Computed example of a mutant assay.
Amino acid sequence: MAIKEGIRTGGRSARVQESIHAAIRDLLLEHDRATISVPMIALRAGVTPSTIYRRWGDLTSLLADAAVERLRPDAPINCGNLRDDLQSWTEQYLDDMNSAAGREMMRDVVGSAASCSSKCASIVRDQLQIIVDRALVRGEAAPPAEELVDAIVAPMIYRILYSEAAPTLERMFQLIDNCLDRYR
């Protein structure tokens, strides 16, 4: 079941969502992901399980939604040039996604409703678009954000999920350079 559209973003609805997301964050620090349940989250958040089921439908969709919210950056990266911005962003993203919590989050997103995956992709694309826009204002040549997703994010996620090991940071920097070389 997808997250219901048209839910107000402020007021009680936002407070309930935040309390549920906070409960999930806290529980994941205290328990193995496999032991967490909707009733456990509801109890910690101070809501009824029916509140969670009504909004998210199932545990996987709820965990995916909370994980996607975690992807939102605190502040945009700004190192002063495109290459450094992309390297900093990539290093942070690789650390996040390659962590145990990041891998579980990706599995939850993949196993959830399509709207959650789309939201996740949109957040990543928006983060990269900020970096690209900043570079263009500085007068630097920059690839489109979608090109960066294909050149940097897609291989990283594939390697994390399906390879024996995640890509090294050096390999990710090579992919950044290869992409930037095409736009210089």
Rank of each mutant, 00 (worst) to 15 (best):
Arg134Gln: 10
Arg134Gly: 03
Ala135Pro: 03
Val137Ala: 13
Val137His: 12
Val137Phe: 12
Val137Asp: 09
Gly139Asn: 08
Glu140Arg: 03
Ala141Ile: 10
Ala142Asp: 01
Pro143Lys: 03
Pro143Thr: 03
Pro144Gln: 13
Ala145Met: 07
Ala145Cys: 08
Ala145Gly: 02
Glu146Gly: 09
Glu146Lys: 10
Glu147Trp: 05
Glu147Gln: 10
Glu147His: 09
Glu147Tyr: 02
Val149Ile: 14
Asp150Phe: 12
Asp150Ile: 07
Ile152Tyr: 01
Ile152Arg: 00
Ile152Leu: 13
Ile152Gly: 00
Ile152Glu: 00
Val153Phe: 05
Val153His: 02
Val153Asp: 01
Val153Gln: 01
Pro155Leu: 07
Met156Ile: 07
Ile157Pro: 00
Tyr158Phe: 15
Arg159Gly: 02
Arg159Tyr: 06
Arg159Ala: 10
Ile160Thr: 03
Ile160Gly: 00
Leu161Asn: 12
Tyr162Phe: 15
Tyr162Val: 12
Tyr162Ala: 10
Ser163Asp: 15
Ser163Val: 06
Ser163Asn: 15
Ser163His: 13
Glu164Gly: 12
Glu164Gln: 13
Glu164Thr: 12
Ala166Leu: 03
Ala166Glu: 01
Ala166Thr: 09
Ala166Gln: 02
Thr168Lys: 07
Thr168Gln: 09
Thr168Trp: 09
Leu169Ala: 12
Glu170Gly: 07
Glu170Asn: 10
Glu170Ala: 15
Met172Tyr: 01
